[in-house]
């Protein structure tokens, strides 16, 4: 476990060079959303999205120094490496999420000077979080399979493909189960987040297993 901790620390320390840029982006987001009076459709979505992207960028850092090969000279297994990567990306997305929630609440309370709708902030955030996780479920194995360079391009196509896939699944679900669109939207509104969260957790674990399999065969 210590070794996994060490690898996660490495990924976080790599971000030191990002500090100024990250702060700048944060302030920019805050200001723009504040002026546009559109805090909730901006902050809780874009900040975690950026955090997730930063998490994935750890593959690029590794690629620059070919650190996979070096790390494998340590008493560290390939499985440890994949595990640490998943945990790191998860942690940094959560940090982005928490930051987004806090910032939304603070900005809202300054703006409205009235009661802040915490439930709304949280449900939007959780929704985004689940969305980002779905992206990562595909992104991470792709990065392992194709490497950081090619992975980035393939990743773009995947995002589009996932969008189609999800809507496709939803539409065929409606067709097969003979529920009307209205009924479906109602169900989604009521239970959507819970279903999404459960499916996410399951798929995230599956994605990890797939990545371990891919990485264990990879020549580094």
């Amino acid at each position: 476990m210590n070794r996994i901790k060490g690898l996660i620390i490495k990924d976080f320390l790599n971000l030191k060079t990002y500090r100024v840029t990250a702060l700048f982006i944060l302030i920019l987001f805050a200001t723009v959303s504040f002026i546009n009076d559109d805090i909730l459709s901006f902050i809780p979505i874009f900040i975690p999205l950026c955090a997730g992207m930063i998490g994935i960028s750890s593959f690029n850092y590794d690629n620059i120094t070919k650190s996979d090969r070096y790390i494998l000279t340590f008493p560290v297994s390939r499985k440890d490496m994949v595990k640490s990567r998943y945990l790191y990306i998860f942690f940094i997305t959560v940090i982005g999420e928490v930051l987004a929630v806090l910032l939304s609440i603070i900005l809202q309370s300054i703006k409205q000077q009235s009661l802040v709708n915490v439930i709304e902030v949280l449900s939007i955030s959780l929704g985004t979080f689940c969305g980002i996780m779905i992206l990562q479920i595909f992104e991470i194995p792709i990065m392992y399979k194709f490497g950081a360079e090619k992975g980035r391009i393939i990743q773009m196509f995947t995002i589009v493909a996932i969008a189609f896939l999800i809507s496709g699944v939803a539409i065929s679900f409606i067709k097969i189960s003979s529920i009307s669109l209205e009924e479906f939207l109602y169900i989604m509104q009521k239970y959507g987040l819970i279903i999404l969260t459960l499916v996410d957790i399951f798929l995230y674990f599956l994605s990890y297993k797939v990545s371990v399999k891919i990485f264990s065969k990879k020549e580094v």
Partner: peptide, 21 residues
Amino acid sequence: DSFLSDYLNAIDINKVMKNIY
């Protein structure tokens, strides 16, 4: 041609490595 990272300094490396070995 391979190392931990280009963006760490010597102090950072110690923080990582003391968890590894």
